[in-house]
Structures are given as structure tokens and as C-alpha cells.
Amino acid sequence: MIPAGFSYVRAGSVEEALDELSRHGGAARPLAGGHSLLPAMKLRRAEPGVLVDIGRLRELSYVRADGDRIAVGALTSHRTLERDPVVAAQVPLLAAAARRIGDPQVRNRGTIGGSLAHADPAADLAGAVLALDGVLVARGPAGVREIPAREFFTGRCRNALAPGELLTEIRLPAAPGRSYAFEKFSRRALDWAVVGVAAQARPGGGVAIALIGMGPTPVRATAVEEALAAGEPAAEAARLAAWGCEPPDDAVASASYRTHLAEVLVTRALAAL
């Protein structure tokens, strides 16, 4: 597992990181926890010419309650999400998803920003952020903008960030005391989801449901959400879990098994709410 050559700069601040990224253009990639990027480089699936290490920007590692919104810095580790009291009280779905990522080593190194930016269709946090109707904050040469989670994932391992933009913060509506469920089905105990479901009860009633592993991007199970809103029983609604999805058909699982799993996991998630 030997990566191609690259050069490395460590950014001392967000500004510096943005400068470096724009200076090197398309050749540069931010490096956060390195737990998706470095394996990809070792497998030569990624060959960035320059790594801009943002891993030590403590300013981007935080969890803050901000009125009825929770702000999470992009460099907050999975481990922090798992254990942070604000997360536990306000957006426990995020903690539940973080807890299911890889092993403790991965959770100590991996960051929420890296996970979302990497945009793996089976990423646990992506499901949670999507079900929570999160908003992603990007900073770039052109300034700061907000991208709703629903618009962030644009394809398999593709996101809506413009070249040179950094993901800096994830904003989540607080959901204290509201029920949630995270159901993940993986081949091994410490493994990526084959299919996963994140479900969050909404303030005015209704449920937001996101699926991972069911297509090129994480998706909302809108058919289920609508059926529930229309008063359909959970069992009936769950049948629509894979509606509109194009699940992959690969060595891990066939499309039809994934479709079946989506229904089973949505049923379980709804039962757990």
C-alpha cells in the first residue's frame, strides 16, 4: 500500500488553509483525520499532489448550543460526538450514528467534516445529518455559504463544495427529548453499513428518515415519510423504504437484498421511535 508522491503543508489557521488550497488549485486536498483520504491514497484511488493538513485546527473542533441550533465544528472527531453532553442532550441521533463508526482508533481520528466531505454513500454520519435536516457551512475564496444536507451529496463520493472551499461547520436543529433511531446493518461488527437507517421524530409530528448504502448518495426515504404523514401504519409505510432508490448490486450485497434490508431496518427504526 504505497501512495504516489505528494507534498504536504500544515495549515495554522482556516485562512491559511484556504490560501494554500487556492494557491495549489485542483492538485490540493484538505487532510482532516486522514481515515478516508490516506487509505484512498495508499490504494492509489486518490493521488493529490498537495495535502493541506487542517487536522490541527483546534478552532474547528467544537460543539456549541446556539439557541435552538447546535453548531458542530467540521474537525470534531467521531469520538467527541459519541461522548459530548450537548450532542447527547440535543442531537442524540448524531451520537448514536457516531458510535457505530469503525473502531475506537477510527473514531478518535475521523472527523465529521471529513466524513461528510468524503461523501461515501454508506457513511453513518451522513445519514444522521440528513435525517436531522442539517445545514453545512462552507468557507471559500468567495466567502461563506450554507448548503442544506439534502443538496450536499451530489454523487458517489462527490459533494457540492466548490474547488478551494472548506467545510467548517455543521448546523443541526436541536431535537431534545425527541425520539430517534439508528439502525445499521453491516457484514462485520466493525464495518461499513450495507444499509443503514437514521430516523428522527420531528417537532410538529412526523418522522424524517434517511437511508445509507441505498444508492450513490445517502437519501431521504421520502415515500415512507409521506406515507406516515398520510396516516399509513408503520408496516405499510416501511414497504416503501427503497422507493426511488437505485441500490448498488455488488460483491457486498445484491440490489434486491439491500432493498429488503431497507424495509426491515425502516420497520425496526419506526418500531424503536
Binding site: L43, R188, A189, L190, A251
Partner: peptide
């Protein structure tokens, strides 16, 4: 080969 890495070749871990 469809199992050329330990991502695809399912060596179980202690928890499995």
C-alpha cells in the same frame, strides 16, 4: 479479483 482488499475480503474481527 473481487476481494483484493480487506474491505472486500471479510476477515472477521474479535467482535464477530
Amino acid at each position: 479479483p473481487l476481494t483484493a482488499s480487506l474491505e472486500d475480503y471479510m476477515v472477521p474481527g474479535a467482535l464477530d
